[in-house]
Amino acid sequence: MLYRNLSDLKVPAVAVGCMRIAGLSPDRLSALVDTAIADGANFFDHADIYGGGESEQAFGRLLAARPGLREKVIIQSKCGIRPGMYDFSKSHIIESVDGILSRLGTDRLDLLLLHRPDTLMEPEEVCEAFTELERSGKVLRFGVSNFNSRQLELLQSGVKQKLLVNQLQFGLMCTGLIDHALSANTEFPHAPDRDGEVLDYCRLKNVLIQAWSPFQYGFFEGVFLDNEKFPELNEKLRELGGKYGVSPQAMAAAWILRHPAGMQVICGTTSPERLADICTACEIELSREDWYSLYLAAGNKLP
Rank of each mutant, 00 (worst) to 15 (best):
residue 50 Y to G: 08
residue 255 W to T: 04
residue 183 S to L: 14
residue 170 F to G: 06
residue 124 E to D: 09
residue 130 F to S: 14
residue 65 A to Q: 06
residue 177 L to V: 05
residue 244 Y to V: 11
residue 141 R to K: 13
residue 299 G to A: 04
residue 236 K to F: 11
residue 213 S to M: 14
residue 150 R to A: 15
residue 296 L to G: 11
residue 41 A to E: 02
residue 301 K to L: 12
residue 181 A to M: 11
residue 57 Q to C: 14
residue 174 C to R: 14
residue 168 L to I: 10
residue 115 H to K: 07
residue 194 R to E: 08
residue 283 E to V: 10
residue 119 T to A: 14
residue 127 C to S: 15
residue 134 E to I: 10
residue 70 R to G: 02
residue 12 P to F: 01
residue 227 N to K: 11
residue 23 G to I: 00
residue 41 A to M: 04
residue 183 S to K: 08
residue 213 S to P: 15
residue 301 K to Q: 13
residue 154 L to C: 12
residue 90 K to I: 15
residue 57 Q to W: 06
residue 186 T to P: 05
residue 67 P to F: 00
residue 20 R to F: 11
residue 181 A to Q: 08
residue 68 G to Q: 01
residue 222 G to W: 03
residue 224 F to M: 08
residue 140 L to P: 09
residue 156 Q to L: 07
residue 37 I to G: 03
residue 37 I to F: 01
residue 149 S to I: 12
residue 68 G to C: 02
residue 37 I to Q: 01
residue 22 A to V: 09
residue 35 T to E: 11
residue 229 K to Q: 14
residue 143 G to R: 10
residue 152 L to Y: 06
residue 270 T to R: 02
residue 96 S to K: 13
residue 282 C to V: 10
residue 187 E to K: 12
residue 221 E to D: 14
residue 167 Q to K: 07
residue 189 P to T: 05
residue 228 E to F: 13
residue 177 L to T: 04
residue 240 L to H: 02
residue 15 A to C: 03
residue 276 A to P: 01
residue 93 I to Y: 04
residue 176 G to H: 05
residue 67 P to Q: 03
residue 259 H to M: 05
residue 242 G to K: 10
residue 86 Y to D: 15
residue 258 R to W: 06
residue 301 K to S: 11
residue 37 I to L: 07
residue 159 V to E: 08
residue 116 R to L: 10
residue 194 R to I: 11
residue 137 G to D: 09
residue 185 N to L: 12
residue 152 L to T: 07
residue 185 N to C: 11
residue 115 H to L: 10
residue 192 P to F: 01
residue 133 L to R: 05
residue 302 L to S: 06
residue 261 A to L: 05
residue 205 K to D: 12
residue 288 R to T: 15
residue 200 D to G: 13
residue 35 T to A: 07
residue 178 I to G: 02
residue 37 I to M: 04
residue 135 R to Y: 09
residue 24 L to Q: 00
residue 219 F to N: 15
residue 175 T to V: 15
residue 174 C to M: 15
residue 230 F to Y: 06
residue 258 R to A: 09
residue 195 D to R: 08
residue 282 C to H: 05
residue 74 I to L: 04
residue 66 R to S: 04
residue 73 V to N: 00
residue 285 E to L: 14
residue 158 G to M: 10
residue 123 P to T: 03
residue 242 G to D: 12
residue 160 K to Q: 15
residue 266 I to M: 02
residue 235 E to F: 15
residue 179 D to S: 09
residue 30 S to I: 00
residue 254 A to V: 03
residue 47 A to W: 01
residue 114 L to N: 02
residue 280 T to I: 08
residue 158 G to Y: 07
residue 271 S to I: 09
residue 11 V to G: 02
residue 249 Q to W: 10
residue 83 P to G: 12
residue 166 N to R: 05
